[in-house]
């Protein structure tokens, strides 16, 4: 095993383990903190895939903004921090079987897919993926429309959130 693979397995274990803790922890704030660790693991995965920009964007947006928003929401809502109710319901065996089945299916499909074994070739010298992304985002024949729509979508999200959160009067 190469060092990268060892790091990959370690980080994956941390990511999945903390994701499991998110759904099993009783304390809501602690669950949010586990979620942060899980999201951080994803950021490390982005680094291992050599997309540093997505890694830092993951940390800034998901940990720096969304997790903070969640923690605020939890802390500002009284009496939901400790939920004494049961964590599963009667259909959990079916859900477990389905999840395992889908996992097995994915493993089976990836095993049989020859493209999964292809090693990515390194970037040619002088090629900056970040710069290419920047150009692609505002080029009319590439991602200009999605880029501008993303902006309008965010505007819509902001207005919607304001209306839902603020429309008391």
């Amino acid at each position: 095993m190469s060092p990268i693979q060892i790091i990959f397995i370690l980080v994956s274990a941390i990511t999945l383990g903390s994701a499991l803790m998110v759904v099993t922890t009783r304390n809501m704030v602690r669950a949010a903190l586990w979620l942060v660790l899980s999201l951080f693991g994803i950021a490390i995965h982005f680094v291992l895939l050599e997309v540093g920009f997505f890694a830092v964007a993951q940390v800034i947006i998901y940990i720096g903004a969304i997790a903070i928003l969640m923690i605020f929401a939890i802390m500002l809502t009284r009496r939901i921090a400790q939920d004494p109710g049961p964590q599963t319901n009667s259909t959990w065996p079916i859900a477990a079987i389905l999840a395992l089945g889908i996992f097995g299916l994915i493993v089976f499909l990836v095993q049989g897919w020859e493209k999964a074994a292809i090693q990515p070739s390194p970037f040619p010298a002088g090629y900056d993926p970040l710069r290419e992304l920047g150009v692609a985002l505002v080029s009319a024949n590439q991602y200009l429309i999605p880029f501008e729509i993303a902006s309008i979508l965010l505007l819509a999200a902001l207005i919607g959130a304001i209306i839902i959160a603020w429309d008391k009067k």
Binding site: F53, A55, V59, I63, G64, I68, I71, L130
Partner: peptide
């Protein structure tokens, strides 16, 4: 790293978490 400026913002975000 070619994302140094954003890296600083990202680390600052984790610092915010420490305070909360």
């Amino acid at each position: 790293i070619n994302v140094g400026a954003l890296y600083i913002v990202a680390v600052g975000a984790i610092g915010t978490l420490g305070i909360i």
